[in-house]
């Protein structure tokens, strides 16, 4: 008898559509859909996908509690032995949704779960503690190794086999500490590590630090009436025609644009360069992402002194943490030099 698997995928991998269909409501189908075919093959008859649950990424992100409950009920009806979600690669909302589904399934049903994500997917950081998330490449080009690794992890769990370390099995580190006995005591191991570091040799930490920076909150602006406030966005609002050719995804740069004399971010002069959400609404009225119109109102009313005469924009869609960190540092440098007191950052 083979194990029963339910597979969770998004609207894109189900072949329903891209961003224009991202509001697709949860739906259950019998058997395999899309990447389920490859996953099924990788499980070699030892487990079978009996049903697929599909949900649009935006629908899930905007209705998390409702969508989770609906999806959980659909999964329950298939009476699965395990649930697999993705692989989501570097798609942020898909990663977040699949991680959330795995977390609630593991909690409610107590059955094995596996996901697949690129390590920089925000869903990985959010849900790596709740599920085994196999480390994948950043795009669907890596589908083959991804489903292979995910199949191995789910079968091992179903068979009650021991799951090795993240390095051995290829999943994203879950932050679980296990007590093990080693020949050498901690002090000796630490001294060896230090010696290796001093010699410039590779060494492996036993306690990796988190990847995301944490900064202490800045003190509040006490005199808003005299403050210069700037707008920055990762929602891709740029002058019409995208003069700096900011990429629709995986942006390698940001733009700096004048707001001198601009009273509103209207559709005649601005648009979005972002390729990760349905651009209809932002293109129709870019103020919906970059609120220039109300900033001008509030400036006129004296709520703050001045809207900074430049705004900064990039596209936060699969853009690497390394790149965004660099953009952030440069933008902050410029804003400080220009005497800006406060910044409103908008994200889609």
């Amino acid at each position: 008898m083979s194990y029963r698997i339910v597979h969770y995928i998004n609207q894109f991998f189900a072949g329903i559509g891209g961003e224009e269909k991202a509001d697709h409501k949860p739906e259950a189908r019998e058997g395999v859909v899309g990447p389920g075919l490859a996953l099924n093959a990788a499980m070699k008859g030892r487990a079978e996908i009996v049903g697929t649950v599909i949900c649009g990424d935006s629908y899930f992100a905007e209705n998390m509690d409702k969508a989770s409950a609906e999806i959980l009920e659909m999964i329950r009806k298939f009476s699965p032995d395990a649930v697999v979600a993705g692989p989501a690669f570097n798609a942020g909302r898909y990663g977040t949704a699949s991680g959330a589904v795995l977390e609630i399934v593991a909690k409610e049903f107590g059955i094995p779960v596996v996901g697949g994500m690129y390590p920089e997917n925000p869903g990985a950081e959010l849900y790596r503690k709740s599920a085994y998330i196999f480390k994948t490449s950043d795009s669907a080009r890596g589908m083959g190794p991804a489903v292979q690794g995910m199949a191995t992890l789910i079968l091992k769990q179903l068979d009650g086999e021991k799951i090795g370390s993240p390095d051995e099995e290829g999943y994203i580190e879950r932050g679980i500490r296990k007590n093990v006995f080693l020949e050498k005591v901690g002090g000796e191991r630490a001294a060896e590590m230090l010696a290796k570091k001093l010699r410039g040799e590779p060494f492996k930490t036993e306690y990796p630090m988190p990847v995301f920076d944490r900064v202490a909150p800045n003190p509040p602006i006490l005199d808003m009436k005299n403050a210069v406030v700037a707008l920055v966005t990762s929602g891709g609002i740029v002058p019409k025609g995208n003069p700096d050719h900011i990429e629709a995804s995986s942006a390698t740069h940001y733009g700096e644009y004048s707001l001198a004399g601009v009273m509103t971010a209207d559709e005649a002069h601005y648009e979005t360069a972002h390729g990760g959400y349905d651009p209809t609404y932002a293109n129709k009225n870019p103020n919906r992402v970059l609120p220039v119109d109300v900033m001008r109102q509030l400036e006129k009313e004296g709520v703050f002194k001045k809207l900074h005469e430049k705004f900064y924009a990039t596209v936060g869609n699969g853009t690497s943490v390394g790149n965004t960190k660099k953009f952030g540092e440069e933008i902050v440098g410029k804003l400080k030099k220009d005497g800006v007191d406060a910044v409103i950052v908008t994200s889609t």
């Binding site: 977040t96 910044v343 950052v345 994200s347």
Partner: peptide, 13 residues
Amino acid sequence: MVHVCTIVPISLT
């Protein structure tokens, strides 16, 4: 800096 965004969990992360 204040972050106006829809997916709060990502902002927190």
